[in-house]
Amino acid sequence: KKSYVLIKVKNPKTKETHTIVVPEENLEEVLKALASQPNVKVVDIERFP
């Protein structure tokens, strides 16, 4: 059974918020990819039960 993680990201320029759902096993690479985006800020990470 896969567990999923909900990542909320915000664009500081446009103030838009997006929610991305990723499998927990991919969380680290997704966070690394997001960290390299200049106008993306991770605001929240939630685990799915």
Results as ranks from 00 to 15, higher is better:
T19N: 07
A33P: 00
N39F: 05
A33D: 07
A35W: 06
T17D: 03
N39L: 05
A33H: 12
P23G: 06
D44W: 15
L27N: 00
E28N: 11
E46C: 13
V40M: 13
V21E: 04
V43M: 09
L34S: 00
S36G: 11
I20P: 00
R47W: 14
Q37I: 10
L27D: 00
N39A: 05
P38F: 03
P38K: 11
F48Y: 12
V30N: 01
P49K: 04
E25Y: 05
V21T: 05
T14W: 04
E46I: 14
K32W: 06
V43R: 02
F48H: 08
F48T: 06
V9P: 00
V9E: 00
A35S: 09
K41F: 08
E25A: 08
S36N: 11
F48E: 04
L27K: 02
T19W: 14
P49Q: 10
N39Y: 05
L6Q: 12
K2F: 06
T17W: 12
P49G: 06
R47N: 05
N26I: 12
R47Q: 05
K1I: 09
P38I: 09
E25G: 06
K15R: 08
V42R: 01
K2P: 15
I20V: 04
K2E: 12
K1H: 10
A35Q: 11
V22D: 00
K15F: 09
E25N: 05
Y4C: 13
L34R: 00
D44Q: 13
K8T: 14
V40Q: 05
K15W: 06
D44H: 15
V43W: 02
L27Q: 02
P38T: 11
I7R: 00
K2S: 07
K8Y: 15
Q37A: 07
Q37M: 13
K10I: 15
E25S: 07
L34W: 02
A35D: 05
A35M: 12
K32P: 00
Q37Y: 13
H18T: 10
P49C: 07
L27C: 03
V22K: 00
L31T: 01
I20H: 02
P23Q: 10
E29M: 12
P12V: 15
K1T: 08
N26Q: 13
K8F: 12
E16A: 09
V30A: 06
E46H: 13
P38W: 02
V30R: 02
E25L: 04
V21L: 12
E25T: 05
E28I: 08
A35E: 10
V22E: 01
V42E: 02
S3W: 15
T17F: 11
P49F: 05
V21G: 02
K8P: 00
I7K: 00
K8D: 02
K41Q: 13
L34T: 01
P49L: 07
V43A: 03
I45S: 01
K10H: 15
Y4F: 09
V43L: 07
I45K: 01
E28P: 06
K13V: 14
K13A: 09
K13D: 09
E29I: 07
A35Y: 10
K8I: 14
V5F: 13
L6N: 09
E46Y: 08
D44R: 13
V42M: 03
N11A: 02
V22M: 02
T14F: 04
N26Y: 15
V5N: 01
S3Y: 14
K32Q: 09
A33L: 14
P12Y: 15
K8V: 14
K1M: 08
I45Q: 02
K13I: 15
E24N: 04
L31S: 01
P12D: 15
K2L: 09
T19E: 06
S3G: 12
L31V: 02
S3V: 12
I20M: 06
E46G: 08
K41D: 10
K32A: 11
E16C: 15
V22L: 03
K32L: 10
L27A: 04
V30D: 00
E16S: 08
K2T: 08
T19K: 05
K1C: 12
V21I: 13
P23K: 10
N26D: 13
D44L: 15
K15A: 08
I45T: 03
K2H: 14
S36Q: 12
I20D: 00
E28R: 07
P23H: 09
